[in-house]
Design a protein around this nucleic acid. Sequence first.
DNA 1: ACTTTTATTTAGATTTACCTAAACTTTATT
DNA 2: AATAAAGTTTAGGTAAATCTAAATAAAAGT
Lengths: 221, 221
Amino acid sequence: MMNLSIAEENYIKSIYKLEEEGQEAVTTNALANELDTKPASVTDMAKKLKEKQLISYEKYQGINLTSEGKKAALSIIRRHRLWECFLVDKLSFSWEEVHELAEELEHVRSEKLINRLSDFLGNPQIDPHGDPIPDALGKMGKPRVQTPLHKAKAKRLEVVAVSDKSTALLEFLNAKGIRLGTQLDVIERYEFDNSIELKIRNQPAFTISEQVSKNIMVKPI
Amino acid sequence: MMNLSIAEENYIKSIYKLEEEGQEAVTTNALANELDTKPASVTDMAKKLKEKQLISYEKYQGINLTSEGKKAALSIIRRHRLWECFLVDKLSFSWEEVHELAEELEHVRSEKLINRLSDFLGNPQIDPHGDPIPDALGKMGKPRVQTPLHKAKAKRLEVVAVSDKSTALLEFLNAKGIRLGTQLDVIERYEFDNSIELKIRNQPAFTISEQVSKNIMVKPI
DNA sequence: ACTTTTATTTAGATTTACCTAAACTTTATT
DNA sequence: AATAAAGTTTAGGTAAATCTAAATAAAAGT
């Protein structure tokens, strides 16, 4: 396997993520946005990654991973998710705070280290967010259907879990009638504050903040 | 604490190491050699680190860490040595192979991560090589007196351990009369192959290779 | 003290990963 | 279909960390 810089790895990972989220070809803008950088920088990197045969790319036509690129992405994702497991299971971090740390740890590229870490953790199949972990050969289970509400794409959803167990949140959800198994309809998503307007059955619609929606795990019905 | 790049951290760590090994002021050449880079690059970085007040440096006069610089060094060393403990204790790596991995892991700068890792490991005081681990406040125990023979500075030494337990090595040492507690006199160190000429008591001198001397742990008498 | 050798620094380039501003394509709107 | 808007690329530049080659300073040898 080729030797990638940290920047290159981050691009590959983001392209994989955006492809998985649905776009046929990943656009320059979407990638710039995902990586918190400028479109011009994305174009530069796209040329480099094409040169290395990790992506297919034609001017103005967007980006897709080649099979080599996918292999690389899965290896990075494997490292990321195993470190997340380690942080949560062994160092008792909460699942919300591990992402950034795993983001750094994932760039230590050593097959041996990662395979031993996996053994040490009991070869887990899913990470603390519920995402599947690719095995040493790059095989990965089905992507999870369950996502936090603020990221859900579908309009009709069912509540499957609440991740923040603070009484304040639980009381709020109770008051709104949101509990496990509740079916929600997304009426509207407001860009400016990422709040979401919801409806339950035939009851009047109401709005919840991004903070709240982040902690409601849902799956499409 | 300031935010250092990986390159800067590596310089700080090497300067600390060379200071500890005895030089009053660390020379450009020694540092270039330690970091496997060119003297010109060291001069560049010295200017930058001086700017950041981590070292004192005057043209042609060598380098020393300031107290800020020492604090930074101890923090990096703490991270490095804790990761070494983790790799050996939890992932069953052998102590010779952990250095390079720890070299990468050490650059993940998170106090919280490192303190939790330390707790998880039972707050060890020494790493797998026998070196002391600075605590969260930067306090560190006495540097170990025991070193592999190829690094020992003193001329009169006592054998305190043998790290490679292969029969081939043990037979060789036995034939030469080297065992635990044996007193050695270093007669000469040969630069070209790092071999060492030794004498035991009044017996005739003999020479051992670097390979062998790396596996003989000694302390000064 | 002078000269040679060794060590160090400067000057000028290079590479990676960015950036801004301007130019150019594609897509959407009238 | 023409034009406006949005998205993308190019051109040219910057900062970090490196390098080589040349210049300069310090140390060692005579």
